[in-house]
């Protein structure tokens, strides 16, 4: 399990770096699919097989295909983008390093919270991974679930209005 964790970490970080470093947006889109597969591997290691399937179906299957379609539609594969602006690069790198230092500092100094024993792996595996998420979605989280459906409807209408001539 540890070996798998390190393999997935290396793949995820490498492909994330390639997403922001390559010039061609189409290559970026292909590398981000690799990153999503590595993250799906993490979800399986964390015993959430349903989320791993959703990750591959929704992200790699739907969103990235949509992006590749737009790149193709706008003929952007030739639109090379070079990182030339030195000030932008300097400000970006320094602020991201600060952000990373803050996060790591927080991870090292945060107080330990004890794990509960409500939904342990044994309980989740007994009920079933998909079934327990379904139960939560339709009981405790039913209002956010309905709001999410309204949000998707608004997004579809908004995208149509934006793209309409």
């Amino acid at each position: 399990m540890e070996a798998l964790f390190y393999i997935f970490s290396i793949i995820a970080i490498f492909s994330a770096l390639m997403v922001i470093l390559v010039k061609n947006p189409l290559t970026s889109a292909l590398y981000i699919i690799l990153c999503f597969f590595a993250l799906a591997g993490f979800y399986i290691l964390l015993n959430m097989q349903f989320l791993a399937a959703m990750q591959i179906l929704v992200y790699a299957g739907a969103i990235i295909v949509l992006i590749v379609l737009v790149i193709m539609l706008l003929n952007l594969a030739k639109a090379k983008d070079t990182i030339k602006d030195f000030h932008q690069l300097a400000v970006g790198v320094i602020s991201v390093l600060l952000l990373f230092a803050e996060v790591i500092l927080y991870l090292n100094t945060a107080g330990e919270s004890k794990p509960t024993d409500i939904y342990t792996n044994a309980v989740i595996n007994k009920i079933g991974n998909t079934q327990i998420i379904g139960q939560f979605l339709f009981t405790k989280y039913v209002f956010p679930f309905e709001v999410a459906s309204i949000l998707l409807l608004v997004a579809v209408i908004g995208a149509y209005i934006f793209a309409k001539k």
């Binding site: 995820a12 994330a16 997403v19 922001i20 952007l76 400000v91 996060v103």
Partner: peptide, 27 residues
Amino acid sequence: ASIIFCIGALGVLIRKNLITIFLSLEL
């Protein structure tokens, strides 16, 4: 997770291509 988040933030800050910025947001 924090390393990937910082890489995504860096991509948003240094790139100028709208599609690449969107991909960094997804990261």
